[in-house]
Simulated scan of single mutants.
Amino acid sequence: MSDPTPTGASASYGAGPAATEPAYSTRPVAFRGPESLGGLLCILAGIAAGLSLPLDWLSDRDAGGWTLVREAFDDLDRVFDDGGWQPLAIVLGGGVLLLLGIALWLPARSHRFVGLLALVVSGVVTAAVLVPLVDADWDLGFFGPGFWCGIAVAVLGLLGSLKAVLTGPRYSSR
């Protein structure tokens, strides 16, 4: 009995494209685009960190954010002993969130990695906000407007990073 395959043809069917198969994929393609809302929220978190610098952080102490950050940098070896890490984490974390928010506006198929980085930074900022709140027994009258901006850094950073992490690639039908 003779082999039905022509001479020189492959004996395995489906190994290569068929003659009528299109040269392009029929599946949807993820297109590159910005993560607008997540980026905007992270950028606003960075702006709130910048706004906290000239404002007073504590109601009973006349010390703005610049003073607290400068004191934390001066005593960098003992920054975790006296609680100086909180203003430092909030302000520097806000600066990093600003940069990550700009990166979220760049076109990409997915912004999940940048969103994950922003989520880690937001977690540190949230911890830096929650520790003084717990120490003050949740008495919000103890804090000044600079610390309220620090709370805004944590909230906006968490919302923006979660939006970037949870939003998957967008597909086009074209």
Rank of each mutant, 00 (worst) to 15 (best):
S10G: 02
A15T: 12
G16N: 13
E21R: 15
P22H: 11
A23P: 00
Y24D: 12
S25T: 14
S25N: 12
P28F: 09
V29I: 14
V29M: 09
R32A: 14
E35Y: 05
S36F: 08
S36R: 11
C42F: 03
C42I: 00
I43V: 15
L44Q: 00
L44Y: 01
A45I: 10
G46W: 03
G46T: 03
A48E: 05
A48F: 08
A48S: 13
A48Y: 07
A48C: 10
A49G: 07
G50K: 02
L53E: 03
L53M: 13
L55W: 02
L55H: 03
D56Y: 09
W57I: 02
W57Y: 08
L58K: 03
G64L: 01
W66P: 00
L68D: 04
V69L: 10
R70N: 04
R70A: 08
R70C: 02
R70D: 05
R70Y: 03
R70W: 05
A72S: 11
A72T: 04
D75R: 08
L76F: 13
L76E: 07
R78K: 08
R78T: 12
D81W: 02
G83C: 03
W85F: 09
Q86H: 12
A89F: 05
A89G: 10
I90H: 04
G93Q: 02
G94D: 11
G95R: 09
V96Q: 10
L97M: 15
L99C: 13
L99W: 11
L100H: 13
L104H: 12
W105Y: 07
W105V: 01
L106W: 13
P107R: 11
A108K: 10
R109G: 10
R109M: 09
R112L: 07
F113K: 13
V114R: 15
